[in-house]
Nucleic acid binder design. Structure first.
Lengths: 133, 133
DNA sequence: TAAAAAATTTACGTAAAAGTAAAACCCGCC
DNA sequence: GGCGGGTTTTACTTTTACGTAAATTTTTTA
């Protein structure tokens, strides 16, 4: 049931092209412990799971999360089932991150609303000046 | 029709307390041209409009925008009505920013959905272990 | 197998966004 | 009229997230 497009391994430059970052950046994320590609000799081999982690990292970056915060998010996903205390803590951490994200969404919605206003005023003004879009 | 709570001026430390940043930070934003408090002698006096700008700046920071990007957003709001060419450009810039923000919202929604999954699995697991929340 | 292309390590450099520290200034108050 | 608190300027420092370059090794291709 494997997808036919699913590659075993990706090279570092394949990934730099896909994500639009440099090799330095990807190696930096490895140094920071966000990904752990296996090696064949000295050469890094990236599995699909590494690629998915990179996607997650890029998403985090777009949202303005620092490396440290992205590390936290990754830790949440990686958390093994564990025992009760751990689970409670995990649920709590999830809740905190969600709060952060909801604040961001609120900020976004406000900003978009304001931009919509600016746009509307501009279009009105242009109509007054007798201009078609 | 002025709100009674509307102060004429705020001091720099009042604002540092309100926004949870240092004086250095506020002065830095002034250096960067994001705000322009007036002076009485050498001392900065912040008007309500400066305070509103600071709110906008903080919101931008929460969203991970750089100072340069925040400057752009402020420029959009400040734009005077202007002539047709300017207006068209403004509408275009608004549209670009909105696209950015919509991408961020998409990222947020995806991340929240994933966190919800983690939470659900955790709660299920805890229920199996016979634990009440 | 030789040459070209890709990848690695090591190390110094840099831009952004402040932090921190020192020295001087102003201002109301006892 | 000195003193404490808040403010200002100047300037050096720090952290984060990579950029850049050199020298070397490994892999691929002709």
């Amino acid at each position: 049931m494997k997808s036919p497009e699913q590659k075993q391994f990706y090279s570092i430059t394949e990934l730099t092209r896909e994500f639009g970052v440099s090799t330095r950046t990807i190696r930096f994320y490895e140094d920071e412990g966000l990904i752990q590609p296996v090696r064949r000799g000295r050469t890094r081999l990236f599995k699909p799971s590494d690629r998915r982690l990179l996607m997650l990292i890029m998403r985090g970056k777009r949202l303005g999360f620092s490396i440290a915060e992205i590390r936290e998010i990754i830790a949440i996903y990686k958390e093994p089932p564990g025992e009760v205390g751990q689970l409670k803590l995990l649920v709590q951490r999830v809740s905190e991150k969600r709060d952060q994200l909801q604040q961001k969404r609120k900020d976004i919605d406000e900003t978009i609303a304001e931009l919509d206003q600016v746009e509307e005023q501009s279009l009105t003004r242009m109509a007054e000046l007798g201009v078609g879009t």
